[in-house]
Nucleic acid binder design. Sequence first.
RNA 1: GUCGGGGUAGCUCAGCGGUAGAGCAAACGGCUCAUAAUCGUUAGGUCGCGGGUUCAAAUCCCGCCCCCGACACCA
Length: 598
Amino acid sequence: MGEHILVAVAWPYANGPRHIGHVAGFGVPSDIFARYHRLKGNYVLMVSGTDEHGTPITLAADKEGVTPQAIADRYSQIIGDDLYHLGLSYDTFTRTTTLNHYRVTQDIFKTLYEKGYILRQETLGAFSASTGRTLPDRYIEGTCPICGYHEARGDQCDNCGHQLDPIDLINPRSKIDGQPPVFKETEQFFLDLPVFADRLQKWITRQTHWRPNVRSFSLNFIKELKPRPITRDLDWGVPIPLPEYAGRDDKKIYVWFDAVIGYLSASIEWAKNRGTPDAWRDWWQNRRARHYYFMGKDNIVFHSVIWPSQLMGYFSDGFYAGSAAGAFAEVPLQLPHNIVSSEFLTMEGKKFSSSRGVVIYVNDVLSRYDPDALRYFLAIAGPENQDTDFTWSEFVRRNNDELVATWGNLVNRTLTNVYKNFGSVPAPETLTEGDHALIATVEGGFATCGEAIEQARFKSAISEAMRLASLVNTYLSEQEPWKVIKQDRARAATIWYVALHCVDQLKLLFTPFLPFSSQRLHEYLGYDGFIAGPLEFREYTEEHGTSHRVLTGDYESWIGRWEPSSLPVGQPLRQPAPLFKKLDEQVVEDELARLMGT
RNA sequence: GUCGGGGUAGCUCAGCGGUAGAGCAAACGGCUCAUAAUCGUUAGGUCGCGGGUUCAAAUCCCGCCCCCGACACCA
């Protein structure tokens, strides 16, 4: 009786390695959510990929004298590796430069165009004198016509704060090569957002389960909708699928229009790769499916307004949705059920900034620390409701004083005692009232933590699991089974059985957050099989001959369930080892020195 | 500038109309099975500033200060 849950995760932009702020905002939260729903027995489809079009990638390519594709290839590889090492369990993590993605994007563009939702309009654009490419407003600087500030940007003056138009700048010049930009008339395509305004307004008004800031912000945004340009004068992007643009390389679909389509195209790719090409419809053309989108606060409206408009316009038409048969026929593509946006992570009190060296890359952290240590920090101290600060001393403290001391130590003291004294799960005698009470409280975590995760309150969920772990520590301190065993071996066996049973429950409660250590614990407890198994990369070749790598996993074979488990009495334990590593205080200094050095 | 979010104990954060909360840090005590881990007790805040509404405000309203984001061609 599982539900169909689409977990749609923001697409990291492939112009560099990603820092921990990115995975804090949407990576770890979305993975917690997906893993939880799989344990619940729901049908989860978790998709994302690298976003590989747009101006910044072309600039990086120019700078290095390579092709945009080469830049995208390099960083797609690095970003995919990061997500793999962090254990983010995508069903499909692909890329926007696949043939499949181009086809889906073009079908949506073409369908919206034919249905009259895309307008054509002449606009005045700024172009680089040297390359002829579009110069985005923010890449133009000049003197502010209002305050005279010499380094005002084309979109805004940082000195007086006024919004500007690049044509108004005095002595405008390109930030890239210093040349004055060339202004000329150029045709662009616009998504006619105002025609969706009424439907958007009614739809969003009904979404009372959205976080209040997302909902009110979106409602406010749609009060002043204007047609939005969805093409750019660039040679890097998805080609415009109209006859008059066939073979032309000067105008492409805008990166934001195609990036959100990735949620759909990746789902279609997943189904195809799996050999069940229509399976994506179970999520996208199933009125009971629920779609959850995870992203940073900077791109709420792309998910709450613009992407829904694209979906409303496409509806049940076009090549993909329109080819549905049977129960899926005429069913429109489903709109988001919830938009889970995060705030931002800062670093030692400052905004992350790659160019200024204020940055901690994911691969850098994972080369020295366990993924669960980072996942723990991001889950319990991440920017869920407000900006939060990452500091190395806080990272070390959370790891040592909370993860290691409370949960790691509970597991370690329990396993080493039982392994040494009994070797297998000891048979309990009659449980006392207190024993039953503790078990009931810990098992209550499936309801309380589960409810918090469903509401995307991840900090609250993992805090509750930690609280339950410390209750078991208290229980052991009070019961003192290491003393009891000297007089009453049967009672000591019972106490250790109770503790071990609780550890077995906590293992499951922690699985969405700390999959690597929960899997190890699962094995120490003598179980076989995966509750959180390995992820894998698979290579897929498309019709035109190029291949790309997809991050995925065999999640259907995992065996954990989000419900109390019964540890079999007599099950032999395996030789235990500490679940987590305690970090030396020295790492704080070392890491800070490393930051200064970069 | 306009709109939205945030400013709560030394630190990181929760609470968001009804006698100020958690974790860590601090002080004291217990335990010694466990990665010198753990358990208990105590201490610690005029909840950014100034007004207002209310029997009652961290919580609602108004103004101000500071931080963050959006404001359409950066993603």
